[in-house]
Design a protein around this nucleic acid. Structure first.
Lengths: 125, 125
DNA sequence: ATATTAATGCAAATAAGTCGCAATAATTAA
DNA sequence: TTAATTATTGCGACTTATTTGCATTAATAT
């Protein structure tokens, strides 16, 4: 399926680009200056994830958060698996520049990682 | 608040003890031989988590899974943070005996970890 | 045996995310 | 530049996971 550039996509992408933190759909909706329907925001975000423009984190609150972080991109442009930090005080999620390292037992094939550390961030401690 | 022993608690705990995999509420409900109300199952599970009898994993499907694993208990009885593996083929979650290792930047305090690797497990590959 | 209050079932509420559909608009071809 | 194609959008309804209020039941302690 081809992609089209639209104001909605541009607005969401710009917001994510300028955000230090991973954002949930409702945070995005709140921070946008233009009004975009909830379903559309989800569709745009899902599209971005498919296209690897954005990565998705699921926190232990069960919600999805979305982030762009240039730092976590390999030279090869592959998104390097990294930890995320969820601060219980300011209720934000950020990408940590800490790679996720593991070695799985023989026969296991890892396709994706979702690693979130929870606690109190530097700003709040 | 004091705790009371009830058939519901016993049944859920026994099931988790005998299960190799982490179980969701609906999996628990399906596998139980006695009928327990959904809300009760959640309450029992939340109680167990409070009491550190059981640990909770949130997968990238946004659902909660519950597990007891003796192996991941330290001698000190503290639950050692470990990776979990979610198999996309058989749709199960298991505890891996792989410790989660990280070092967070100064000022960050980690209280909890939720780390799930997704892919294909040994049984399915 | 009785009092206390934790635990339960039920139904309703909440919340996140998805989906169908008709209308709109970005892109391509003419 | 216009017309055709089809991706995108908004809306409302829906699904699914989890929680909550409330009245009832039943463990436990006295």
């Amino acid at each position: 399926m081809n992609r089209r550039n639209t104001p909605s996509k541009e607005a969401v992408l710009d917001l994510l680009k300028s955000s230090k933190r991973a954002l949930s759909q409702d945070a995005i909706e709140r921070q946008l200056t233009i009004k975009i329907n909830r379903a559309t925001i989800y569709r745009v975000l899902n599209r971005f994830c498919e296209d690897d423009l954005v990565h998705r984190i699921v926190a232990e609150d069960g919600k999805q958060y979305f982030a762009i972080c240039k730092k976590c991109k390999h030279p090869s442009d592959i998104i390097l698996p990294h930890f995320h930090f969820r601060c219980l005080s300011c209720d934000t999620i950020e990408c940590l520049q800490i790679p996720v390292e593991y070695s799985v037992p023989k026969g296991y094939e890892v396709q994706n990682t979702n690693c979130v550390l929870t606690g109190i961030c530097n700003d709040c401690s």
